[in-house]
Design a binder for these strands. Structure first.
Lengths: 194, 194
DNA sequence: GCAATGAGTGAGTAGTTACTCATTTAAACT
DNA sequence: AGTTTAAATGAGTAACTACTCACTCATTGC
């Protein structure tokens, strides 16, 4: 029973890490700085995470899970596929605008090569629920001209840029308006002028 | 006249740097490794670039310029704006598929915060020609419901994911087909079902 | 052939980093 | 209160990094 380690400190460490990673990058952020911000000593970090890499991995899986939850929640099997896809995109964007730091961390992760083996394996943007939705759409004749890669690229990546701009206060419209524009333009893009 | 430094070695160093940066990341790549790959000694690198940061900056501006050229070349003032935008996207994608490493470096740069001040200032994805095109499109009633941020996000970011997938051999369709799908789905996405 | 210039070298340096471990502190149980 | 258990500490360490500089080597002009 070595689980006397407080969940509170674990959370604090992870939060401090996301904050710093998202603004400075993994490599530019010393573990010392993380433990400082979390209000614990340098050594304590390594009682909660065996290595810095393990900390990064934990963060990644945690964020991945949160995103997967957002995707799952947005799926309403009884409604038309296109509405579902739109809705998932909307949910995801909401989550991202509410969690910009986690999103930036995630993007950084997606674009930085060779950070950790484990998390690279989880496939940085593979969510089974969305895949099923895509398959369903294809089998119903929608999205026919579009293969999975292009679909996923259009679905995920623009979001990152929007969060970037939002974080640095470079968004003209307000968040809701931006989300709606992004959802609409993606769907219509995928539809391939039926 | 300190410019007896050979342009050849400069090129070699920059090429080695892109190669390594794009597969390992900036921070994970020691200058030693770069000079090794370029076939020069550790000290020589610092005769060509005062600091590692200056090397990164040089790379960034060089790639930025190449991309700007691709954009400029694709613009044909006499043709309709929508064709021009499509064409620019096509050109950009072509360039990216031909220069995947430079593209990955660029993406990494875009998503890593606080790397260099200078290059951050260049605005990582600001190309005047494309901005003008966007303005023109708006003033002609096309693209009316879409603000610049969403437009740029849809224009640039999905490309990065496609290059990623392509680099790791995860693209189903061939390159040409993928490019066409991407161009078509973006435009149609922007058009907002006229 | 000689001297001068400056490009190229790579062992060395100062600084930083992830991680350790002997010790302290605090809580839990008897 | 006293003893046991484990969490927290932070100075210390080994490894690594960007960058330097005293020197060698190659080229050029005379």
């Amino acid at each position: 029973m070595s689980r006397h380690l407080s969940e509170k400190k674990r959370k604090a460490l992870m939060e401090a890490a996301v904050d710093l990673f998202s603004t400075q990058g993994f490599h530019a952020t010393p573990t010392q700085q993380i433990s400082d911000r979390a209000g614990v000593s340098a050594g304590t970090l390594f009682r909660y995470f065996r290595t810095k890499e393990e900390l990064i991995d934990s963060l990644h899986t945690s964020i991945h899970r949160a995103l997967a939850d957002a995707v799952d929640e947005a799926i309403r099997p009884e409604t038309p596929v296109e509405d579902q896809i739109k809705n998932v995109k909307r949910q995801v964007l909401h989550w991202m605008f509410e969690n910009p730091k986690k999103t930036l961390f995630f993007e950084q992760f997606a674009s930085s090569p060779n950070i950790t083996k484990k998390a690279q394996k989880e496939g940085f943007i593979r969510f089974s629920a969305l895949d099923e939705l895509y398959q369903k759409a294809v089998s119903r004749g929608i999205l026919k001209g579009i293969n999975r890669e292009v679909f996923l690229a259009n679905f995920w990546y623009p979001n990152f840029m929007l969060i970037h701009l939002h974080t640095f206060g470079k968004l003209q419209s307000d968040v809701e308006e931006t989300i709606e524009q992004s959802v609409a333009s993606m769907w219509c893009g995928m539809e391939q002028r039926q």
